[in-house]
Amino acid sequence: MLMNDKVPLIREKALWMRRTAFTMVHRAQLGHPGGDFSAMDILATLYFGVLNFDAKRPDWPDRDRFVMSKGHATGALYSALCAAGYFPEDWLQTYMQPKSLLNGHPNRNYLPGVETNTGPLGHGFPVATGIAIAGQLTGATYRTFVLTGDGEQQEGSNWEAAMVAGHRKLSHLTLIIDRNRLQQGAGTEETSGLDPLDDKYRAFGFDVVEVDGHDHAALLAVLGAAPASKPRCVIANTTKGKGVSFMENVASWHHGVPNAAQYDQAMKELV
């Protein structure tokens, strides 16, 4: 199958995931929809175009791993895992309810398909680095993908991981940065600037690729490309809140929640 044949499926799944995540956030009146929506096309591309997995065997040793380091974006992660078949759709209705398996941040002991517990920022990349080292030690062929927010790159633990991954030439590791340029309260560049991110990662020993983080065909080409000799860093340029007009590029939608009118409006736009 040609890679681009997968694009219509990815587009369809990304739309379903956006509608599903916004419905979860609306019902719970809790969540992080801005970051969910900037990451949604990346997750849809991974789960429906790139990752080699079997939802019926979440512990399959040779599976590709996806680590959601921006653990607050559970609207995106849970809708992706559900669409990928890891758990039934009715579980989504319990999002953040008492004793729900769908906690505000993912827990691998609650849900199949969650590779590690995240939530505090700067944890996923080091863990993904360890997963990739395990693969390198054993000559395994699986690949490891980790998604961080861009504001999250301010956490120093990421740069510890970058040194280790570059030093060990972890070719089967791909770091994806959701570069929406907004963190919780303001822009990344006015808070503690990240640019030039590409030069930083090149200096740490990564192959760096920039991509439109909402272009499924482009994402598919970049994320699906075979491993080379170094770890890869994909800077995915995205729009926080992408797909809903009133959320796009508005920092307060980081953890904003919709009222009934906003929910109806979003559902009209997400078609």
Binding site: F125, G135, A161
Partner: peptide, 14 residues
């Protein structure tokens, strides 16, 4: 930090 995180990742990798 990465030392302990790598430990978790190695466990994930068996």
């Amino acid at each position: 930090q990465v030392m302990v995180g790598v430990g978790a990742g190695l466990a994930n990798g068996g």
